[in-house]
């Protein structure tokens, strides 16, 4: 009889514990207690305007193939092993859609982020440098990127295109535009819910001096790449090894 009683007690305790866990798990996220404690910080983000080649780069890392892509609706995210020479590193690679309404999602990934690839279409930069710069400004001034000095690689993609321009020219163009943006953005009105905090008032670079990427605490690299495959020509791959080594450098 005694054993039976103990059995009943254990059983009821188990049921209560189970119910408590399930209920608590909804109310409070317990994942950081169980399992998620030692979560590695190995995120790399791929950002950029629509149609600049983000998903192609993501798919290249994932499948080592140049794949045909179309406009993304959702985030591509996966833990991917990146090989270079004799090294292998696991990277949590995330490709955020470039659509202006979906861009903001990158903020959710910043806590585990070790580096940002900002993809630019070198053949269209003459037309869309304003939009590129605005997006880049938003990335650079987001709190975590600024405070944790997350390194940024500006990837000048589609270098195979005849109309594309060099990375150094792109750099000058973006710096010039960021210089303008810095002045107008800091003069914009405070938002309604700030309660007097000045967290958003990040000033990029040095006051009273023209903006340069050297002035900001983040490391900024420029990598020229091309991931082009077409039926009639052999695939053109430029800069993919530099890209891989940049990724591996970020995580070591």
């Amino acid at each position: 009889m005694n054993y039976f009683e103990i059995f009943i007690w254990v059983l009821s305790f188990a049921i209560v514990a189970f119910l408590l866990f399930t209920v608590l798990n909804h109310r409070v996220d317990l994942s950081f207690v169980f399992g998620g404690a030692g979560k590695k910080k190995n995120g790399i983000l791929i950002l950029g305007l629509p149609d600049s080649g983000k998903t192609t780069i993501w798919a290249w890392f994932r499948y080592t193939l140049v794949l045909p892509t179309q406009t993304s609706m959702k985030v591509n995210e996966e833990e991917i092993p990146v090989h270079l020479m004799d090294k292998t590193v696991n990277v949590f690679l995330t490709d955020i859609p470039g659509n202006i309404k979906l861009r903001h999602q990158f903020i959710q990934y910043l806590p585990i982020c070790k580096g940002i690839m900002f993809v630019v279409d070198s053949s269209k930069i003459d037309e869309n440098y304003q939009e590129v710069s605005e997006y880049l400004y938003d990335v650079l001034t987001s709190t975590q990127v600024f405070e944790q000095k997350i390194p940024i690689a500006i990837i000048c993609n589609k270098r195979d295109d005849e109309k594309s321009i060099k990375g150094t020219e792109i750099k000058l163009k973006i710096e010039d535009e960021l210089n303008h943006l810095r002045s107008t953005r800091t003069l914009a009105l405070d938002s309604h819910d700030d309660n007097g905090s000045y967290k958003d008032d990040i000033y990029l670079g040095i006051q009273d001096e023209k903006f340069e990427f050297l002035h900001i605490p983040n490391q900024v690299a420029f990598i020229e790449t091309s991931f082009q495959s077409s039926l009639d020509k052999s695939p053109v791959l430029i800069g993919h090894s530099e890209l891989s080594s940049w990724v591996i450098d970020r995580l070591e």
């Binding site: 998903t55 798919a59 794949l67 892509t69 179309q70 993304s72 591509n76």
Partner: peptide, 10 residues
């Protein structure tokens, strides 16, 4: 006709 992932890979 195209079948693609919502992430954009065809």
């Amino acid at each position: 006709f195209v079948i693609a992932t919502q992430g954009g890979i065809i």
